[in-house]
């Protein structure tokens, strides 16, 4: 008795796609089971955004200038925090992959007749699910410190979808870092060293206008700024559009956001799969 897969030439494209999806789902299910089995990991991961919410609102709130008229810092900050959190949350992709490599699980997977994309697809999609759980919990915390969605249910759902997409993009970037570094400890350090400047030199946490003038153009063109502003407008309405730079409509912001997301995926997904294929 033999299993279904036969020599490569005989495997047509539709079978390939079907196996790719099925294998990705098997790995995703396995990763989700892991989240359920070690819920403490989720609790620790939640501690970080809560700390940021409290630090920024208690320590910074009344020291932040240049806010759009009529905004409290809490209202301004929270959509940015959601984006920041999705980006930070993507480091679990790198850590999970590095751990699987260290334990030999990736070797087992690579010796199986499964799709070469499945380990990465399974990991990045299970991390979207994990990010959704985290995001909903952080939204609850945001409500406790005074944040409110002001642009209706559709806006709120749109913001959640945008934030999760940003997390998905960074999961693939995170996968590339893990496949390059291959060590759990190194991966964590590399991710945070790279992510902090990207998030801080953006409109995620403070308005661009108060930054050093030479860095303002960098911040204005940072995709994190685009995403944070789009999330802000989706959550709060057009009043949140910064008047002095970037698209001046929600539609414009959405298009720029999606172009960035699609562009980064087009670059990093093939790189990650190629690196996985070529692992030794």
């Amino acid at each position: 008795m033999r299993v279904a897969t036969e020599p490569s030439a005989a495997v047509d494209l539709s079978t390939r796609v079907r196996y790719g999806v099925a294998d990705g789902m098997v790995v995703m299910r396995r990763n989700l089971l892991q989240i359920l089995r070690i819920p403490t990991a989720l609790v620790f991961e939640l501690a970080q955004p809560i700390m940021f919410v409290l630090l920024f609102t208690i320590v910074f709130a009344r020291n932040i200038a240049n806010l759009p008229p009529g905004f409290t810092y809490v209202m301004f900050l929270m959509p940015g925090i959601f984006v920041q959190n999705a980006i930070f949350g993507s480091t679990t992709t790198a850590i999970g992959l590095a751990e699987d490599m260290k334990k030999g699980l990736v070797d087992r997977f690579r010796s199986l007749p499964m799709a070469r994309s499945a380990v990465l697809v399974g990991r990045t999609t299970s991390d979207v699910a994990k990010n959704l759980i985290l995001l909903l919990l952080v939204i609850v915390v945001a409500y406790l410190v005074g944040f409110r969605f002001q642009n209706g249910v559709v806006g709120a759902i749109g913001m959640i979808a945008l934030v999760l997409s940003v997390g998905f993009v960074f999961s693939w970037i995170s996968a590339v870092v893990a496949l390059a570094i291959k060590q759990v400890e190194g991966v964590q350090a590399a991710m945070f060293t790279g992510i902090f400047p990207i998030v801080f030199v953006s409109a995620a946490l403070v308005p661009v206008i108060g930054m050093a003038s030479w860095i303002q153009p960098v911040a204005e063109h940072n995709p994190v700024t685009v995403w944070a502003n789009t999330a802000r407008v989706l959550a709060l309405g057009d009043v949140a559009i910064p008047p002095n730079y970037g698209p001046q409509t929600l539609q414009g912001l959405l298009i720029t956001s999606v172009v960035w997301i699609a562009g980064l995926l087009l670059v990093f997904v093939p790189i990650a799969i190629r690196m996985y294929r070529k692992l030794t």
Partner: peptide, 14 residues
């Protein structure tokens, strides 16, 4: 890959 099994040092369980 669908014709052999691998176990030991080079493979692992979750």
């Amino acid at each position: 890959r669908s014709r052999f099994g691998l176990a030991g040092q080079s493979a692992a369980v979750d």
